[in-house]
């Protein structure tokens, strides 16, 4: 059991850093503008991120396993560690980074090393989501922005009523955002461990049973929650300034747009519906909440005339989207080579 926990440690570490960074996307505005206390926000986010991970995480994880069925625990450990190191290095270099892209790069690195065929059709769909995700978030943000302006203009709310509804809205959206983050991003940190999972089903009561995959996601969800509780306040204070330039309501729109995008990319039902009706197929795939936020902010920025948008920064972000999976793949490939040839460990079956 302990040796397996060690194997999982890279995923749990990735989960912690995901919670520390992406927790700020969900509740950063609410806490930063003092609309909510950090303790309240962290408590709600922790509960819902775990619920999202356990109840809705399997679809995105399935997609990742279709891309690369990492069937050896040591291999899964290395895939996650490579992704975590890529994320760490990119963050250090102050380049916007996506855990989702890092893990996909690392899986491809494993595929190449283990001579497994990469599903090119699926890969191109996933890469498509990297562009589609921020675009969709931007479109949603613009629509929601118009809708909210209309409601405020014609709703005749007093300032204090508006304040009250904004707080309620921030709590509900934060809870939804945390759920969507758990459901969508749990695949990033635990998806690669699913194939080699040795855990047994767990029964709490007759009705409350967790299958091995859900136990894995529960552990991952807890690690994200710990990241939110222990470090996201620091992230809010240090990197949240860009968001605070917006009004709490505009920032709220950004959070809703981001949460909806994450939810859409976690929903198997929606994916089936789109495919059935020959619409644009959205595979349930882990996407980056930060990229969704960036898309939503750009959407609102363009709506306001595009004056405040830092295009240089956006260029840097695009470069990050290309470099992150490449670095993760390279790191994974090299590390697998060392694990297999220097330490004689089985990294694939």
């Amino acid at each position: 059991m302990f040796s397996y926990l060690f194997i999982l440690s890279s995923g749990l570490f990735l989960g912690w850093s995901l919670g520390a960074n992406d927790g700020a996307n969900i509740f950063g505005t609410a806490v930063g503008t003092k609309m909510l206390k950090f303790r309240t926000a962290a408590f709600i986010a922790s509960i819902f991120v775990i619920i999202g991970a356990v109840t809705g995480g399997s679809y995105a994880a399935k997609t990742l396993n279709e891309l690369g069925n990492v069937n050896a625990p040591t291999g899964a450990f290395m895939v996650c560690l490579a992704a975590a190191l890529a994320v760490y290095w990119m963050t250090k270099s102050k380049i916007s980074v996506s855990t989702s892209q890092a893990i996909i790069g690392a899986i491809i690195g494993w595929n190449i090393y283990s001579n497994k065929q990469t599903n090119i059709e699926l890969l191109s769909k996933i890469i498509g989501t990297w562009i589609f995700c921020p675009v969709l978030a931007g479109l949603l943000a613009v629509t929601l922005y118009f809708l909210l302006r209309f409601i405020i203009k014609h709703g005749h709310f007093s300032l204090l009523q508006q304040d009250f509804y904004t707080r309620i809205g921030l709590i509900l959206t934060g809870a939804f955002g945390a759920y969507a983050l758990g459901a969508n991003n749990i695949a990033n940190i635990m998806g690669v461990f699913v194939s080699s999972n040795p855990l047994q089903p767990l029964s709490f009561t007759a009705n409350l049973k967790l299958n091995p995959e859900q136990i894995l996601f529960l552990l991952g969800g807890i690690s994200i929650a710990i990241g939110i509780i222990t470090y996201s306040e620091h992230t809010i204070q240090t990197v949240g300034r860009n968001i605070f330039l917006m009004s709490p309501l505009a920032a709220w729109v950004v959070v809703i747009a981001q949460s909806l995008v994450l939810f859409l990319f976690s929903s198997n039902a929606l994916s089936d519906f789109m495919e059935k009706h020959n619409l644009l197929s959205i595979p349930p795939v882990p996407v980056s909440s930060s990229q969704a936020v960036i898309g939503a902010v750009i959407g609102i920025g363009l709506l306001k005339g595009g004056h405040g948008i830092n295009w240089g920064l956006i260029g840097k972000i695009f470069i990050g989207w290309i470099i992150t999976p490449l670095i993760a793949a390279l790191l994974c490939f090299t590390s697998l080579f060392f694990l297999e040839n220097v330490f004689n460990l089985i990294v694939y079956n």
Binding site: T33, K34, M35, L159, L160, D163, S247, P248
Partner: peptide, 12 residues
Amino acid sequence: NDLYSQNLLPNL
């Protein structure tokens, strides 16, 4: 006093 003690309308 109410605005500060109850943290109402923090941004305004």
